[in-house]
Write a protein that binds this DNA or RNA. Structure first.
Lengths: 115, 115
DNA sequence: CTGTATCCGTTGGGATACTG
DNA sequence: CAGTATCCCAACGGATACAG
């Protein structure tokens, strides 16, 4: 319905600050855990839905679309009946995983789970 | 005015996921840039206010209080007239800076500022 | 100088019904 | 199966007036 922008790319949210650009990409309630699950391989829509208990279809779709717009994941559509859609990490998505690892290490060091 | 919780610590937002714990701490429109400015040394309230053009006092106060509750910054109050308050990074806050560096490097590599 | 109190508009997640 | 469309609500940032 948008006149000249069918794909609102969050990449347009580029700020001057590179850290903020990265933070914006992973902002969103389910994005980090989505990247985490996709790091182990390609997943279908309903697989992700089951891996994220409590998420609604609409939200899952939005988060996936935003990650796709940010070049973090691939969305491959098989035009079959019934439909089949597979999601996987892009190369950029994979390159982001070390950051998640470092964040996890930092959290566990300074804010241990079971203090 | 709160019955039993004058300090709402975002640390209570500890989720099972360590990455999400870290992400929650830096979530907030001005927190990253606040940490960045404090990385160069102690700053007073009005200094930070000037370094962050467009922020309102209320928001600046909230973001600083949340970072303090997350043990990322220290708040030192000098009981003088006029008042003087200094903010500085804690050790935990300092230990977070390498993550910001890695995020900046990743952003600049994959989403360069002037493509 | 360093806040607090209040209100307001926007954004984002959630729930549900419906569709190709 | 994999969405879309719609409405709702809570959380957050922002602006302003006031206070210690």
């Amino acid at each position: 319905m948008n006149p000249a922008s069918t794909t609102d790319s969050p990449l347009s949210q580029r700020t001057a600050c590179p850290v903020t650009r990265a933070q914006t990409i992973m902002a969103g309630k389910w994005k980090i855990v989505l990247l985490w699950h996709l790091s182990t391989g390609t997943k279908r829509f309903h697989e992700l839905e089951q891996l994220l208990p409590g998420i609604s279809k609409g939200i899952l779709t939005r988060q996936l679309r935003e990650l796709e717009a940010d070049s973090m994941i691939n969305r491959r559509v098989y035009r079959e009946i019934p439909p089949k859609v597979e999601y996987s990490l892009t190369e950029i998505g994979h390159s982001f995983l070390p950051i998640l690892d470092q964040m996890a290490a930092w959290s566990n060091q300074h804010f241990p789970p079971e203090s």
